[in-house]
Simulated assay, not measured.
Amino acid sequence: MLLWIALIIGVLVVAGLSIYAGILLSRLRQQNKGIAKNQKKRLNYLHESIETIAKAMQQDQCPLSEGCIRIAVLLDNLPDAERHNFGKRWPSIHELYERIKHMPTHDARKEFPKKEIRKMDFERERFEVELEQPIKEDLQALMVWVKEERVKHG
């Protein structure tokens, strides 16, 4: 009789643990689906943002320097950015970014004397003129890549 009680208790414990494990596994699957959905939304947002900025740059609605800064940062935020080697893929975009990333923007500009701001603006504009054509070529290739990525990650 004691053996039967121990056996029944053992079966109940195993059944309870199995149910608990099933509940935890179900929660884990839901959590993983949520993470995957959020990652897909983030990736789509990054691709859409890159595409929008690139189009604006192509249509001269966005200064090349501003667009290059924004695109370079967005590309760096993509998963596996190092593996894709974006700097070598679109060298002109990254070259302009590297040349001007130290320059102050927005409120930080107000902390500099006007003469220094004019000097930096002149330098930035010179870089934009120098790199305009290669940047526009990079933008064409970038747009093709973004469209392929959006199809791939659907």
Rank of each mutant, 00 (worst) to 15 (best):
V151Q: 08
I19E: 07
N85W: 02
K37E: 05
L74K: 08
V144S: 07
G67P: 00
G10C: 08
R29D: 10
T105N: 12
K41H: 09
W145Y: 09
D80Q: 13
Q133K: 09
Q140R: 12
N44W: 08
Q133C: 11
K41I: 06
R124I: 09
C68N: 02
K119C: 01
Q39G: 09
I117P: 04
V146P: 00
Y20R: 05
G34S: 13
Q133E: 15
M103S: 05
V73P: 04
Y20L: 03
M120Q: 09
F127C: 04
T105E: 10
R27H: 11
R70K: 15
A108T: 04
A6S: 08
H102P: 08
E128I: 04
L78M: 08
Y20I: 01
N85I: 11
D80V: 11
E149C: 13
F86V: 03
A6R: 03
E149P: 03
V11A: 05
I93N: 03
N77V: 04
D121Y: 13
V144E: 11
S26E: 15
H106R: 09
P79V: 00
N32T: 11
Q61M: 13
N77G: 07
E82T: 07
R150D: 12
Q133S: 15
C68Y: 00
E125G: 10
E98C: 07
Y97D: 05
I69M: 12
K114Y: 11
Q39V: 04
G154I: 05
G67L: 01
A21K: 10
E137C: 09
M57R: 01
H84K: 14
A15C: 06
K33M: 09
C68P: 00
Q39R: 14
E82P: 04
